[in-house]
Each structure stands twice: as C-alpha cells, then as structure tokens.
Design a protein around this nucleic acid. Sequence first.
DNA 1: AGCACGCCGACT
DNA 2: GTCGGCGTGCTC
Length: 820
Amino acid sequence: MSQHEPQYLEVAVAAPVQQTLTYAAPVATEGILPGQRLLVPLGNRLVTGYLLEIVTHAPPEHSIKAAADVLDDFPLFPANMVPFFRWIAGYYHYPLGELIKGALPSGLAPQSGRQILLTDKGREHLTAGAQQQELAFSWLPVLLEKGALTPAATRKIWRTAERRTMEQWAQQGLIEIRRIVAGQTTGAKTETCVQLNTPDGEMTSPPLSKPETKTLTLLRELSGEIPQPVPRKELAKRYSGARKALTGLQEKGLVGLVEQHVYRDPFGETPPFFPEPAALTAEQEAALNSLLPAITQQRFAPFLLHGVTGSGKTEIYLKASRAALETGKGVLVLVPEIALATQLEGHFFSRFGDQVALLHSGLTTGERYDQWLRVLRGEAQIVIGARSAIFAPLSDPGLIIVDEEHDSAYKQEDGLRYHARDLAVLRASLQGAAVILGSATPSIISYHHAQSGKYQLLSLHKRIENRPMPRVEIVDLQKIQTVSGRPPLFSPDLTAALRENLAKGDQSLIFLNRRGFANLMLCKDCGHTVQCRQCQISLTLHKGRGELLCHYCGYKVKSNMVCANCQSKELIAVGFGTERLEEEIRGLFPQARIARLDRDTTTKRKDYLAILRAVHQGEIDILIGTQMITKGHHFPNVTLVGIVWADAGLGLPDFKAGERTFQLLSQVTGRAGRGEKPGRVIVQTHQPEHYSVVTAQSHDYEAMVTQELELRGQLQFPPFSRLVNLRLEGTDEDAVRAAALELAQKGKQLSRRHPGISVLGPSPAPLSRLRGKYRWQLLLKGQGVDHIHHFLVSLVQDHSRGPHSRAVKLSVDVDPENML
DNA sequence: AGCACGCCGACT
DNA sequence: GTCGGCGTGCTC
C-alpha cells in the first residue's frame, strides 16, 4: 500500500453489531496489522475491536473516528483467517466481532468500565451518616474502608437503581467516577524468579541469619553452573523459610527478583509412549496411497476415512501428518473432547514430541493462552484440540484431521452454534489443505457426500491382525417373564455371561447412557413427580450424594424432601441410571471389583484417568458407565460388553435418533475383544427389530445408511434438505408464544415467494421450559443454502424490529444437531 | 451489549 | 411543570 493513500481500518467490534466498522488509524502508529486488537470508540464507550483489513476507502456516509489504542504488539491470528471468520459469521448469522472474541483464548477482550473512588469531601460527609446509609447500600462500608470500589463491584451497582445515587454523589463531589479500561485478565504468564547478584558468592559482607544462609546455599545449588534465575515457588517448596529469608537477602543486595516468562506444561503428566508399528496392513497402505499425493500437492482435498474400530485409523493420521509437516505446513487435529484426546494425544506426542500443542477445555486460561502463542509463533506445528481448536492460529495448515467425525460434541450448542467438522472442511477449502474425516460410524451426511463424490472415501474394513468383530447377541426385554411384570435390569443371559467372565478373570463393561440412580421421583400418595423448578423436566435421584438433580440446569434439592403437592414423605424412585446399575451389580457379584465411569464419578480429568488406568492394569473386573466409556479406549482384556437398554434414545423427537443409536451401539460394541481374546456383546432392548439395533448387531454400517437415507428421503430431512431451527426464549411465556406465532406468520408469508422453503411450527420446544426460560421453536426446511440465508436474514431482521425483540431472545441454529 | 433519546405517568 | 420509568434505535 502506498504511503500517500489514506489508511482506514476495517474493524469487527466485540459487540453484537452485524456490520464491520471503519476507523482511522490511531495517531503515531506504525506497522499495524490485521489480527491485532484495537481499543475503539463505539458510541460513547471504548470496546475491543479486531483489525480485519487495512483499506483505502471509508464509507462516505459516516463520520470516521480514530481508534484509541493498539492493544497488541503482534497479531493474535494470521490475516488469512479473516475470510474464514467472515464466512462463519455469515453462515451462522452471528456478529463477526463476537465470533472472533469467542475464537480467541478467553480473557482477551478489554472494555471500558468505571471505578468509584472516594474523595476527601466524600469521606468526611459519608462517614457521618454511614450508620443509616449502610442499611441502604451494602457496598458503602467497603468504599469507606478501602477508598474505592473495584470495577467489577461498580459494574454490578451500575445495573441497578443505585446508579442514580452514585451519579448524585459524583455531582456533589463526594465520589469520583473514573473511566477505566478493564477486563484484560490474561497475559503471558510470568513467574517471580530469584537471581544471584554475586555469582562467585562471597558470603562475607553482612552477617546472615541461619535461614538466609540456608536459602542462599539452596539457591546456589539450583542456579546451576551458569547461574539461572530460579522460580521463587521452587525455593519455597524445598525450604519453607525461603520466602521470608529472601526479603532479607534482597535488602542486603545479595539476590534480585526478576519476572520471567514461562510456559506451563499442559501435559499434566507424562503420556504413555506408543512406538511406531513395523508394518502397515494392506488397507492402511491403500488408504495412504490415496492420501499422501493429495497432501504433497498442497491443495484442498476432502477424505472420509471409514475404518471399523481397531482398524488402525490412528496410524494413518500419524503418517499423513508427517507428510504434511514435510511440505512445511501445519497439522490441525480435532477430537471430540478431553476424553479422547488422552489416547490420540499420546500417539502424536510419542511421534512428534514438543511440536505438538494442546488446546482443550481442561486447560486454565493462562495455559490456553500459552498454547495459542506457541502455535501463533510457529513453535508448534501440530495442534490437537477439541472443537474450538478449529480456530487455532496456524498460519498455513496442510492437513486437518477430524477424528470420530460423527460425534455430536463437535456441535457447539450455545452462542455461536457452529459444527467444528463442517468448519474443518471449510477451513481446508479456504486454505488449500487436505482434510480427513475419520470414523468407524461416519455421520449420514458425510457418508452421503462420499457416495456423491464430494469426499473421497477411504475404507478400512478389517481389524488389525484380522481380529474378528465381536459376536453380538440381542435380548428382547419384552419376552422376559418376571414376577413384577416389569423387565429386569439384567436379563438372565447377561447375568450368566457376567458370572462366566468373572470366573475366567476377564473384564466386562456395562453400558447405559443415563447417569444417576432413578430418573423419576413419584409421590406414592398423590402421584406427583418431582420436577425441576427451572425446567420442564423431572429430577434424577443421585443416591450417593443424597440429592435430586436436574440434568439440564444443575438445580438440586435434598433427596429426603417431601412431596411439594401433598407433603407426603413417601416418594418412590422410578427408573434407573448407572448409579442404580452399580448397586445392583454389587449385590449380584459382591466379590467383584467394580468401578463406575460417568460425570458423577469423574469431575476432573485426573479422576477420569485414574479409573482408566485401574481398568488397564486389571484392577477392575466390571466397569459400568455412560457413553464416556465408549470414547476410543483400548482395553485389551475386555471380552464382554453388556448394553442395558439399547433403545433408550429411540423415543426422542429427533430425526437423528436412529443414526445416533446405531453409532452409540457400534462404539460400545467395538470395546469388546480388542485384545487377543474374542469379544462378546449382549444387547438388551425393547425393539429387537429396529433397524438401528439389527444393523448394529451385524456390524453392517452400509445397511444402516441405506435404511436411514431412504427414511430421510421420504421425509425430506438432511441430507436431502437443509434445516434451520429458530429458537425463541424468554421469561414471559405469553411474549415468547406471541413472538413465535408472529415469526411463523412472517415466515409463512415469506415462503410463498420462496417456493423451496417450508416453515414448520411454531411449537413449544421439546424442553418447553429450561433454566427458567420458556422456549418455542420454528423449523425452516429448504433446498439451496443461499436461498435459506436470504430468507433468514429478513426473518431475523423482522424479529429484531418486532415488539418482543428485547423480551424474547431469538437464536438461530443452522444445521441443528439436537432438536431439544 | 450498552448507551442515549424520547415519550408517557406521578410527584414536588 | 420535571423526574424517572422503560420501549426503540444505533454504534464507524
């Protein structure tokens, strides 16, 4: 760009503003680049803005303000990600600045705020009347004591009517309201380190106390040959008196303190080492022969890698990654969640060492930021992470891998409702990279694309070393006679198989995708069920915690409560979850070593790893769990898998229920017989003839796809159409209903001019009340994407101009994964 | 979002 | 008359 042309900045502000805004460059700024954050005036406040592009023309109809400040010394993301961000904002109907804010590691969006400071006059006047005032203003004592309120406290008060008082007092000169820029919480982590000032170490001059001498000696030891600063924390850990002694040593000029930048180690522990296998299977060779040329040619090429569990997909990822690194490009690996990362991250770490950066939700804010910087600076060429890692600042990815691509954890279900797998394909196409979507049970959508030639299909049908797929037996729960007339939790077949396996010393898995003890509390006297106060959902009994829990909002009450309707104490627990299974199994097999893996037993990654390790080391005979146990673990000694209730998900009002049930059954089934011994699976169900169950039994993925595609075709569901779910939410039930009806009417009116698009609903959402909000929804179904987007833009505009736009929130869910 | 502007009811 | 409630529109 020429020096003489005027420079304007196209900026996306971190506020719900749809358009980008144009600012003049801040005074005296050189070499400002896209990807840097700015502090820009918006209305009469200052907000964070993200510089997208430097342009020569400004829109003439606006006065142009200058950016107030540049917040970064370097761009936080590469400029070539800007088109990616723009595309996403358009597709998911989300403000670009908010999107970028969410894509960057958290804590990087300063905003202007206020802080209250007490003046001398104020101290005088307010102290006198403090006794009475205190009753009215809870914050006054703090203000009088500290002379100031924190920005966070001020912000809280500002939202209330007490703001008026503040403004009055400010006018009277009792307090000062200072404008500040707040919210920049995360920076590179620095650590206080101790440095020796006298390297050769004359201990002579001033007399030292005993702790001081000891600390100095320790410091010399740790500093090493060429003295390096030692973290103060480290000294304190080895000698508890060090912290205090250091103050003395500092005064005597013997040591100095420096702030030093450190990287935190995100690998909480050393991951296991996986050696490179000596040989590949013929199928692996064939898949790589298709993949590697595409990677070498450095162009967009999408692949669907369909490989049954245990067929060696990981090795293909690793070989493909090496090829991408050899072209000088980076690799991005997406995994469904932390759970799976442990296995795959171990493999990548074993092969590529510290070239790997990890980005997952288990990291602290600071750790995330550190990993981000490593990627940004090119210090790590491989990124492994959960869905948000799709935004990792790799400047030039040559390969993007999405493992377990069918997993619904890739769909973000609030805020920007993106699908990381879809964004992976998009990013690959924008940046000219190869992309591998891998799964044993690909999503219907992806498989459909492979059939139509949009993706190239790579198949691994055989397990490594030709291990057979496990034998799957179906037990029809309806046919089992019991005294109560209700089906048992464990059929005689499953109980016998468990007993047998236990006798052999083999391990067993019991799977049920529902946690807790009982999912319903019924009043014996009046028949009422205990419901969540916030949601249209019954509370689940968690016996161990002695609580009834809402699985949607986290609301809880003590389980010894009385019926809200009739005060009866006689509440009976109906239904079952993993906690109940555990109790029953312990009763059936008191001698067995039993563990349970679900969100209740593993609140931290550490607990989770501990249970997995115990299973691995053979310390557990029977592992009970939710889908957490299905996530890609290799348990060589598991020879029996019991699925307690296979059709649990089939009753949901969701067109993906059949697909998901098949995927779940296949994933669980795949846990059996991964070692040398063959596996056996027992599937209990009320619907033994359902195609999801039947095809899972025969490991016949293609048959499931054929069935499913036929059904989807008849109903014109994806992939034969596109869906957008418009959800309306608010605390006022009538307003939400009214807004939904209005929107639907507008939609139906509009659809007369857009014949390809139909409007279904409105209707109350399947979860009609959630977290205290009433919910209605409206489904758009149509053919062309562009078509639907035009349609959406005018609908969203209509709502935002409508009378309910503030009381009722509209969220747009493009390609919904979950219809609840 | 967050802030100003503006239009109505109930107080000095 | 004006203070202050919140519906509405805009932010370069």
